[in-house]
């Protein structure tokens, strides 16, 4: 953890991930400070989603360390990973709503799994609270197929919020949405950060989303963390590797 900030909730150190011969992440190092939104910016296929999947234990890197909320993720057993996952929310790029379940059942699912002794009233209160936060309380008994893309994204966000996570990992939250809905989702991400004091890693190459949501930006180039700075500082940079994202 050498060189990482003392208030880091996630510290990624020299992470290497390969698919066959292809090196996707090459000694990637970055940390996420408590309460901040860190955007990871990179080209399509550069390994941004792979990075956050390694953080949550969905993929296993070849080497390096990942420390989340004081726990070394790569040395955790199944129960340890479950414990970390109850404190870290993940918003999937494709929303990943269970299409055989209603909105209510989708939100209930992680609660039933992580909070085994939760009673019915508390469960319903949490569901309604999460749905009201994303402005979709009326969709409780609807199926995901009955919702628009933007509404599905909001429901997926509500499902992420249901366990009151300390950290949220957003995988391209505005991809596939129209600019207005994309803006709404970005503002929702900011609201969540302010209301729940969450820390977030946001994977994106939507520069409007990046500008609105980012406290800091980590630029991913050739598998490594090329630069970490604020939006304004990076925008002023004359480095072509950074400049290409702001043109």
């Amino acid at each position: 953890m050498e060189g990482h900030s003392s208030d880091a909730v996630i510290a990624i150190d020299k992470l290497v991930k390969k698919f066959g011969e292809k090196v996707v992440l090459n000694e990637f190092t970055v940390d996420l400070k408590r309460g901040e939104n860190l955007v990871v910016l990179g080209r399509s296929g550069s390994g941004k989603s792979v990075l956050i999947k390694c953080v949550i234990g969905l993929m296993r890197p070849e080497s390096g360390t990942i420390n989340v909320l004081g726990e070394d993720v790569l040395s955790l057993d199944h129960d340890g990973l479950d414990n970390i996952r109850s404190r870290v929310g993940f918003l999937f790029q494709s929303n990943a709503l269970y299409d055989s379940m209603t909105v209510k059942q989708n939100l209930e699912f992680p609660m039933r799994r992580h909070l085994k002794n939760i009673d019915f009233k508390e469960s319903m209160d949490r569901i309604m609270d999460a749905l009201e936060n994303v402005g979709l309380a009326h969709t409780l008994n609807m199926m995901p197929s009955e919702l628009s893309g933007g509404m599905q994204k909001r429901i997926a966000l509500a499902r992420t919020l249901i366990l009151n996570p300390e950290i949220i990992l957003y995988d391209e939250p505005t991809t596939g949405l129209d600019p207005i809905t994309g803006k709404e989702i970005t503002l929702l991400i900011k609201d969540i950060q302010e209301k729940y004091k969450t820390s977030s890693i946001i994977i994106s190459h939507d520069m409007k989303c990046v500008k609105r949501a980012a406290d800091r930006i980590a630029v991913l180039v050739n598998g490594s963390c090329y630069a970490v700075d604020t939006y304004d500082n990076l925008k002023r940079s004359s480095d072509p590797n950074i400049n290409q994202f702001f043109e």
Binding site: K53, I56, L58, H78, D82, R85, S86, F90, F92, Q93, S94, N95, A96, L97, Y98, D99, F109, P110, R113, H114
Partner: peptide, 18 residues
């Protein structure tokens, strides 16, 4: 297959389910 390609299986794992 469709659960796999729409990341629902990953979402299940993240939700504390095997």
């Amino acid at each position: 297959g469709s659960m796999k390609v729409t990341e629902q299986i990953d979402a299940m794992e993240v939700s504390g389910t095997n």
